[in-house]
C-alpha cells in the first residue's frame, strides 16, 4: 500500500478522490440540486448496494477461477457450468430438505468432487497444453449444458431464502430526509446483506489461508514456481487437487447464491463464465485481491449502468475490460511474467 502510494502519487490521489466522493454520495443527505442532476438518492443507493452484492457474487465465482488459473495454469472454461450445476443441485436439495443452509455443504461437496474428477481425469492428462485444455473444457461445457437442459428443462428456477433472511432490513444509511425533518433510512433485502457478508468472510478467510498458513504458503510457492516446489519434495498433485476442488466447490456454492437472488436458467453458465473472465482480466490473473477489486468494479458498473444508461449497461463492462487491456494488459493487480 505505502509502496504503491510512493510509486504512483497521482494515481493514488485520483483513486482516493473517487472513493471519497462515492462515500460522501452514499452517506451524506442529498440536497435538492443534487437530486435534480442525479435523480433520487434511493435509486442511487440501491444501485450501489446492488452493485456491491453482485460484485460479491462475481467474486465467489471468479476467485475459484483465478486461483485455479494462477496455481495450475489450467484454463477451465467449464467453470460457468460448475456454477449452474451447483445452483440446480442446491435447488433440488433445498426443495427436498426444506433447508437453505443444508444446500451449501451438500453442493460444496458434490461440485468439489466433480472438480476433483475434472482435475484428475482431464487436466492432469494435458498439463501445460493450454489450447487443448481450452478446447476440452469448451466441449465439456457444451455437454454439461445440454445434460442440464435435459434434466432441468428450459424454465428458470429460483431458490427461496429461509424465513430468517426474508424481507428487508434497515441500514444505517440515510435514504432521504422528509420535509418534516424526519430521516428515512435505507431498507435493503436481508438476504443480500447476508450474501455480501458471507462473500467478505470467504474472501478474508481465503486471504488468511493463503497468507498465514502452511497450505497457503505451498499454494503461493506453486503459483510462483511450480517446478521448484515439486523439486523440493512437495506432492504438488495433491495441492492441485485440493485447490481445484475448493475452487469448484466455491463456484457451486455461488450457484446457490445466484439462484437465490437472481434465477437459474440455461445460459446463466456462459454469463457467469464471461463475468468471471472479465473480472479476472480486469483484476489480474491469479490474484485474489485482484478478483475482489475486479468483481467490485464490474458489479458496480453493471448496476449503475442499468440505472443511468439502461441500454448499454452490458457494454460498459466490456469497455472497462478493453481499457484495462489497452493500458495495463496484465490486469490491475496482476504481475508481469
Amino acid at each position: 500500500m505505502q509502496g504503491f502510494i510512493q510509486r504512483n502519487p497521482v494515481w493514488s490521489l485520483l483513486i482516493a478522490l473517487v472513493v471519497a466522493v462515492l462515500l460522501w454520495l452514499v452517506f451524506a443527505p442529498w440536497s435538492d440540486e443534487l437530486e435534480e442532476v442525479l435523480g433520487r438518492k434511493r435509486v442511487f443507493l440501491n444501485a450501489i448496494f446492488g452493485g456491491i452484492t453482485l460484485g460479491a457474487l462475481y467474486f465467489l465465482v471468479a476467485s475459484g477461477f483465478t486461483l485455479i488459473f494462477g496455481l495450475m495454469r489450467n484454463v477451465n472454461l467449464a467453470h460457468g457450468s460448475l456454477y449452474l450445476l451447483g445452483g440446480y443441485i442446491g435447488f433440488e436439495v433445498s426443495e427436498w430438505s426444506g433447508s437453505w443452509f443444508l444446500a451449501f455443504p451438500v453442493v460444496f461437496v458434490i461440485v468439489a468432487v466433480v472438480g476433483l474428477i475434472l482435475q484428475n481425469q482431464v487436466f492432469r492428462r494435458m498439463e501445460g497444453e493450454e489450447l487443448r485444455q481450452t478446447m476440452v473444457t469448451i466441449g465439456l461445457s457444451v455437454v454439461i449444458a445440454d445434460l442440464m437442459l435435459w434434466r432441468w428443462g428450459g424454465q428458470s428456477y429460483t431458490i427461496y431464502a429461509p424465513d430468517m433472511l426474508f424481507g428487508p432490513m434497515t441500514l444505517p444509511v440515510i435514504s432521504s430526509v422528509r420535509d418534516s425533518g424526519e430521516i428515512v433510512y435505507l431498507k435493503y433485502p436481508a438476504v443480500r446483506m447476508a450474501i455480501l457478508f458471507a462473500a467478505i468472510v470467504i474472501g478474508v478467510g481465503m486471504w488468511l489461508v493463503l497468507n498465514k498458513t502452511r497450505l497457503g504458503m505451498l499454494i503461493r510457492a506453486g503459483v510462483d514456481d511450480r517446478e521448484m516446489l515439486a523439486a523440493s519434495g512437495v506432492r504438488i498433485q495433491y495441492v492441485f487437487l485440493a485447490v481445484f476442488a475448493f475452487g469448484a466447490g466455491l463456484a457451486g456454492m455461488a450457484g446457490i447464491v445466484g439462484g437465490t437472488f437472481q434465477s437459474l436458467s440455461p445460459g446463466e453458465d456462459t454469463r457467469f463464465l464471461l463475468a468471471s473472465l472479465v473480472v479476472v482480466i480486469v483484476g489480474g490473473m491469479g490474484s485474489i485481491p485482484g478478483a475482489a477489486i475486479g468483481a467490485l468494479i464490474i458489479g458496480l458498473s453493471e448496476q449503475l449502468g442499468l440505472v443511468y444508461a439502461p441500454t448499454y449497461s452490458v457494454v460498459f463492462t466490456f469497455l472497462i475490460m478493453a481499457a484495462v487491456l489497452a493500458f495495463r494488459p496484465q490486469g490491475l493487480l496482476g504481475e508481469r511474467r
Binding site: 481450452t134 456462459t270 473472465l277 482480466i281 441500454t311 452490458v314 457494454v315 466490456f318 475490460m321 494488459p329
Partner: peptide
C-alpha cells in the same frame, strides 16, 4: 487489442469482445 496478449488470454479477450458485440447489437 488481442495481440497485446498471448495464448489463452487471446481466447478469453476475443471471447469477451465477441459477447460484447452480441450484447451491443441486441441493445442498439
Amino acid at each position: 487489442l488481442a495481440v497485446r496478449t498471448e495464448g489463452i488470454y487471446t481466447i478469453m479477450i476475443t471471447l469477451a469482445i465477441a459477447s460484447a458485440f452480441f450484447y451491443f447489437t441486441r441493445q442498439n
